[in-house]
Amino acid sequence: MSNANVTAGQATKRPITGRFVLICLIVFFGMIIGVNVVMMKFALQTLPGTEVDSPYAASLAYGNEIEAARVQAARGWNVSGHVARDADGAASVRVEARDRDGAALSDVVFTGRLDRPADRRLDQPVELTAVGNGVHRGRVAQLAAGQWDLLLEGTRNGERVFLSRNRVILK
């Protein structure tokens, strides 16, 4: 059989050369690396990294936190926090602290922080001021809507005696 019998619609096959294989490999791996670089760039821009700087140190301190939580629960305090977003985008924070008998906790100094669960770069400290009768108030300018954690810490004579973290959703 001769090549003269090839019909008009059939194309002749090109041989696969080393140059063609090299170009295909370079294009294939170039696309893989390019997509990985783009995905890595987006991942680093949207997630700042770990929540804890040293997981090992945090695990060592965990036992102390459990004991502090037991002591705090034994006190029977009732501490409530309320966060409301104002029309101008600011947030008002109100904390009311009472002991187990309902008396105001006037000797405890409270500090607060609004933490963004997904991005700690957006965390906002709240300066709480005692206004009397166990009530503390604070304000944060320009707080975005969404999920936040209200972290309240109470100290007495320089010692932490209260800690709570509560999820709030601001509209």
Score class of each variant (00 low, 15 high):
Y56F: 13
Y56R: 10
A57D: 13
A58W: 07
A58R: 07
L60G: 09
A61E: 14
A61G: 05
Y62Q: 05
G63I: 08
G63W: 07
N64F: 03
N64E: 09
N64P: 01
N64I: 06
E65Y: 10
E65K: 13
E65F: 12
E67P: 04
E67R: 14
A69C: 04
V71H: 02
V71N: 04
Q72N: 06
A73I: 11
A73C: 11
A74V: 06
G76M: 04
G76Q: 04
N78G: 06
N78W: 12
N78M: 14
V79H: 06
V79W: 13
V79S: 08
S80G: 12
G81I: 05
G81S: 10
H82S: 15
H82G: 09
H82T: 14
H82W: 11
H82C: 09
V83E: 08
A84D: 11
D86W: 12
D86A: 15
D86I: 14
A87Y: 12
D88A: 12
D88G: 13
A90K: 08
A91E: 02
A91C: 09
A91V: 07
R94N: 12
R94S: 15
V95T: 11
E96K: 13
E96A: 15
A97V: 12
A97R: 06
R100K: 15
R100P: 12
D101M: 15
G102T: 07
A103L: 15
A104N: 11
A104K: 10
L105P: 08
L105C: 11
L105Y: 13
S106F: 08
S106W: 10
S106G: 14
V109A: 14
V109W: 12
F110K: 04
F110C: 04
T111N: 12
T111Y: 09
T111D: 08
G112W: 02
R113K: 15
L114T: 05
L114V: 09
D115H: 06
R116T: 14
P117A: 04
A118D: 14
A118W: 13
D119M: 08
R120G: 12
L122I: 10
L122D: 09
D123V: 00
D123T: 00
D123G: 00
Q124Y: 03
P125S: 00
P125C: 01
P125K: 00
V126N: 01
E127R: 11
E127A: 15
E127I: 11
E127H: 06
L128T: 01
L128E: 02
V131S: 02
V131A: 05
G132N: 05
G132W: 05
G132S: 02
N133M: 03
G134P: 02
H136P: 02
H136E: 02
H136I: 03
H136D: 08
H136C: 05
R137K: 07
R139F: 01
V140I: 12
V140E: 01
A141M: 07
A141P: 01
Q142N: 09
L143G: 03
L143H: 02
A145V: 05
G146R: 01
Q147W: 01
Q147C: 02
W148V: 01
W148H: 00
W148M: 01
W148A: 00
W148Y: 01
L151P: 00
L151Y: 00
L151Q: 04
L152V: 01
L152K: 00
E153S: 09
G154H: 06
G154V: 02
T155N: 03
R156M: 10
R156V: 01
N157W: 07
N157E: 10
N157A: 14
E159H: 10
R160D: 02
R160L: 05
V161L: 02
V161C: 01
V161F: 06
V161T: 03
